[in-house]
Design a binder for these strands. Structure first.
Ligand SMILES: [Mg+2]
Length: 236
DNA sequence: GCGACAG
DNA sequence: ATCTTGTCGC
C-alpha cells in the first residue's frame, strides 16, 4: 500500500529522529484531532494485520525490525508476513513511542499489496497522555482502522477486574473513558485495549477479545511479535 | 522535588 | 525493548 503524505517535509524530520520531545508531543496534540472513534466498518474485518517491532543490538548501533503479520479473521491463518529493518533513531520515551517505532513500521506497511481491514498494534491507542498512541498514529497516517493492544498500563485508572476470561472494566483518564482493561485468559494479567483510528471503544475491545483464541495476546499481535524477533530469513 | 511511565 | 535457562505453578 502507498502512503499519502500531507507534509512530506515533516515526515522526513520525524523518520530521521530529528524532532525534540517537545515538538513530538505538540505534534501528537495536533494529530489527535484527526482521530475518528466511529466504526468505519460493519461486520468483522476480513484481514487483520498484527504489528510489532523488536530491537536488536548490532555491533555499533541498535536496529529496529518491524513485522506485520497478515491474518485471516476467524481461522487466524497466517496469510503473509511483511518486514523492514533500519537503525533506531529516536529514544524510548513513555508517551513518544510512535516516533521510535512508526518509521520502520511504515516501511514494512508499504510492502502490503493492499490496505488491511484492520491494524492491531502492540502498544496504546487513545489510552495515552495526549490521546494519541502508536496505534492512532499508524491509523491516521495510513487511513486504516486500527486498535491498540498494550500489555501494561500507560495511563488511566480502573476498578478491580474479575478473574474470568472476557471480563472488562473501563480505563478512565482525565474524566474520559480512554480504553478497556480486558482479561483475555482466566487468571492472567489483562490487556489494555484502546481505539487507534476509525474504531469505537466498544468494538476495539470486542475485536481484541475475539482475536485471543489461544493466548493472552491476540493471534495477529503474537505472530508479529514472534516474527519480529525471529532472525531466520532476516532479509526480504 | 518525587513518582509514574506503551515498548 | 533487551541481556537469557531452568524452574515454579496451574
Ligand atoms: Mg512491541
Amino acid at each position: 500500500m502507498r502512503i499519502e503524505w500531507e507534509d512530506p517535509q515533516q515526515w522526513e524530520r520525524i523518520s530521521r529522529g530529528l524532532l525534540s520531545p517537545a515538538e513530538a508531543a505538540e505534534l501528537q496534540v495536533r494529530l489527535s484531532g484527526r482521530v475518528s472513534l466511529e466504526d468505519a466498518r460493519n461486520g468483522f474485518p476480513l484481514t487483520v494485520a498484527g504489528v510489532d517491532v523488536s530491537i536488536r543490538r548490532e555491533s555499533f548501533e541498535d536496529v529496529a525490525v518491524a513485522c506485520i503479520a497478515l491474518m485471516e479473521w476467524g481461522n487466524w491463518r497466517l496469510l503473509a508476513v511483511f518486514r523492514a529493518a533500519e537503525p533506531v533513531r529516536f529514544p524510548y520515551i513513555p508517551g513518544l513511542l510512535s516516533f521510535r517505532e512508526l518509521p520502520v513500521i511504515l516501511r514494512a506497511a508499504e510492502r502490503l499489496p493492499e490496505p488491511p481491514d484492520l491494524f492491531m498494534v502492540d502498544g496504546a491507542g487513545i489510552a495515552h497522555p495526549r490521546f494519541f498512541g502508536l496505534a492512532c498514529h499508524l491509523g491516521v497516517v495510513t487511513g486504516c482502522p486500527s486498535v491498540g493492544v498494550a500489555k501494561s498500563r500507560l495511563v488511566g485508572t480502573h476498578e478491580p477486574l474479575p478473574e474470568d476470561r472476557g471480563s472488562s472494566v473501563p480505563l478512565l483518564f482525565e474524566g474520559k473513558v480512554a480504553g478497556t482493561v480486558l482479561r483475555t485468559r482466566r487468571g492472567v494479567r489483562p490487556l489494555y485495549v484502546s481505539p487507534g483510528h476509525r474504531v469505537s471503544l466498544g468494538t476495539s475491545a470486542d475485536l481484541a477479545l475475539a482475536a485471543c483464541t489461544r493466548f493472552r495476546l491476540p493471534e495477529p499481535v503474537r505472530a508479529a511479535h514472534k516474527l519480529a524477533g525471529d532472525q531466520t530469513s532476516l532479509y526480504s
